[in-house]
């Protein structure tokens, strides 16, 4: 499968990345090379093989429903780029 520059732009927007013209160009070349490289996978016969998500396959790791102390509001907001006394602030969600 080959990757087009429309693909690159669509993917960049999905990932909330804004690419400059030069980045777009160099990423197109590099992404093409990487995608060709990983296309080797298409040659492997995987019929009847279950996907493997975890390196070690565990099940049913559950915690009891008991409240434990979290962070204070001060701690929660401490690293935020913008906040008021109570809340995180972000630029307007609506245009």
């Amino acid at each position: 499968m080959s990757i087009s520059s429309t693909d690159i732009q669509r993917v960049a927007h999905l990932a909330r990345l804004q690419l400059s013209e030069t980045e777009l160009e160099s990423y197109s070349v590099q992404m093409k090379a990487i995608v060709e490289f990983v296309d080797q996978l298409q040659g492997v016969d995987t019929s009847g093989v279950e996907p493997m998500v975890h390196a070690i396959e565990l099940t049913n790791v559950l915690a009891d429903d008991q409240v434990r102390n979290g962070l204070s509001r001060e701690q929660a907001l401490a690293n935020s780029p913008d906040h008021d006394e109570e809340c995180f602030r972000v630029p307007a969600v609506l245009g």
Binding site: V67, R68, G70, L71, S72, R73, A76, C87, F88
Partner: peptide, 20 residues
Amino acid sequence: CRCSTLFGQPPNTQVCPVCL
């Protein structure tokens, strides 16, 4: 995470690293 789900608490007081 084990933060409380109680309704109506002051903003950002029922949080921890996981739900943040």
